[in-house]
Nucleic acid binder design. Structure first.
Lengths: 335, 335
DNA sequence: GTGAAAGCGCTAACAC
DNA sequence: GTGTTAGCGCTTTCAC
């Protein structure tokens, strides 16, 4: 049967309090007593029961992470670096995948806030802040990751993509492009909105063709890439900006299949993506916008623990910046 | 403050037992009483506390998954489909990342089996079964995923790659290759061992050059790909088999950078990888070995719940098979 | 058809 | 320097 703290106490000839304090280092215990306790623990093969402990203390030592798409390497990498940081601090990570589906997010929000985790990291697929907010119990620690709401009630960790997208358009314009297309994600997402508005502004500033049909909205998952590209090609665009790394890979391949060489029919393509060691190998012929993906995960981990430990600490918006890599740069061979 | 089951009971004018049974449907409650309970719950905004419940029942409704590399799409996809199935059954998924590091796996094994989860899915990076086994409390539900041990004590879900690798070698041989190289993963992994032995057997059977230097072991992460490729190229091989999808992408790019066209200096390349919708676009010029990644995740989910619910059910080894896609096949356009 | 009450294993006052 | 003990919120046996 299960061996409990009382079994240990009995065998060691001490009280359960002493055993507890010995294990947790929460008060002084004499060397000799410690010894007896540890010996008893070893002999019985005792392991403190995590759920009894959580129940008692109210701390679960667990953070939830609601993501739109685990299999997307962008989020996979964020999860990885968040988990890496959290495990360092003795926390576990519970993952929930929404597949960009609002109901799934609702369900998970409800389940995870019901005493399962100490805090929640959310890359939300919702656009209705009021609704999102209504699903979070008052005072529950939440940090928004990658995606924001207009209303800045919750702390967030995100990436600014306005400037790089603006710059992409300018560079395409300078190369002679007149009709620059944009392949964006789900229209409701803050990241999409920000990129689209940067695009619109730059297109106007550069005097390029300003045509809503040049903006193609995908569903933020890779499968929508070909359709988006087809739409843009049918619009005779001569430059393309792809707002997502996963889609970008597909786009490149699809272009190649269609025998449309880059810098020929199409002047230039810019990507927004995560930084992979092998990245340069693939895409050296195009501009890259590299997001600081590991840092997002790390920052997310730091912020959520800050809020878990001090729920009333000030609400920060942490905005990280992407790196813009123009394609003329000297090639830095991976490895 | 926190609202508990007693608050609800008091407001509804019933006992906590009735509230509990109403919520859980564990015994008959009259319609009228139910109503009162639900009204009280709504009024107070009551949510049952998950950790109290776990503590009481001993069921956490949580499965742990120890993976070597979350950011690898192969595992990302397995996690995704496992999570998908588990959430369907009311279970949550705790992720732990080992980065192919044995100590990290040990730590996580210890932490997760200490009352945190009901069962454990593990894609182990260990090769010492005895050691692994010693870290699992007797009777604790465990299912091995993707990677096996020689000793078949634990149930497992894995993929057979012997036949496809054997076939790859044969096909390269038929194309005229004499020196076929293999880019494998960590030598200690069962998947690597199985693939290497298929390779060795086929090389012998086909009368190809049999040279240990033609086998290049990576670390099962993408960053080792270029070094592996360089090693093989220095061996003047005329065909290459890449045992991992992540590495394969890097290899393709690296070959292109080196201006080595496929089917020119190198006769053919085969990949072992997951099935992505866009896959055909990329790699149509090579044979593909497509692993049933979603099914691995699903099967893993099914198996672990079976064991959680019936710890003494028979130990199954579930072996799934990959799909071999020769490159001459008529192209099935993605989508 | 419903209630009373005993714990699950642990931590943390409070006591000495 | 260590022991006693209440109680975290819930489920479930036993009782009526």
């Amino acid at each position: 049967m299960k061996v409990t703290i009382s079994d240990v106490a009995r065998l060691a000839g001490v009280s359960t309090a002493t055993v507890s304090h010995t294990i947790n280092g929460t008060r002084y215990v004499s060397g000799e007593t410690k010894d007896r306790v540890y010996r008893a623990i070893a002999e019985l093969g005792y392991t403190p029961d995590a759920s009894a402990r959580s129940f008692r203390t109210g701390k679960k030592k667990t953070i939830g992470f609601i993501v739109p798409d685990i299999s997307n390497k962008f989020f996979g990498t964020i999860i990885e670096s968040a988990e890496n940081y959290l495990s360092t601090k003795g926390y576990h990570l519970i993952i929930a995948n929404t597949k960009e589906n609002v109901e799934r997010e609702e369900t998970n929000l409800r389940l995870l806030t019901a005493g399962l985790v100490d805090g929640l990291l959310v890359a939300s697929t919702m656009d209705d802040f009021r609704h999102f907010d209504s699903l979070i119990p008052a005072g529950f620690p939440v940090v928004l990751v990658d995606r924001n709401f207009e209303t800045k009630k919750f702390p967030s960790v995100s990436v600014s993509n306005f400037q790089p997208i603006y710059r992409s358009v300018c560079r395409l314009s300078a190369k002679g492009c007149k009709r620059v297309g944009l392949i964006a994600g789900l229209p409701r997402l803050s990241t999409t909105k920000e990129r689209v508005s940067a695009y619109r502004e730059a297109v106007a500033d550069c005097g390029l063709d300003c045509d809503e049909a040049l903006i193609s909205y995908g569903d933020s998952m890779e499968s929508s890439a070909p359709a988006c590209l087809d739409q843009l090609l049918s619009q005779n665009c001569d430059g393309i900006i792809v707002c997502q790394g996963l889609m970008a890979s597909v786009i490149i391949a699809y272009l190649r299949q269609k025998d449309l060489m880059l810098s020929q029919n199409l002047m230039l393509v810019s990507f927004v993506d995560y930084n992979v060691q092998s990245y340069n190998l693939y895409y050296q012929q195009v501009d890259q916008i590299v997001q600081p993906v590991e840092e997002i995960g790390l920052a997310a981990g730091e912020e959520i623990l800050r809020r878990v430990e001090a729920p009333d600490s000030p609400v920060f918006e942490r905005v990280l910046t992407s790196t813009y890599k123009p394609y003329e740069w000297p090639k830095a061979a991976g490895n």
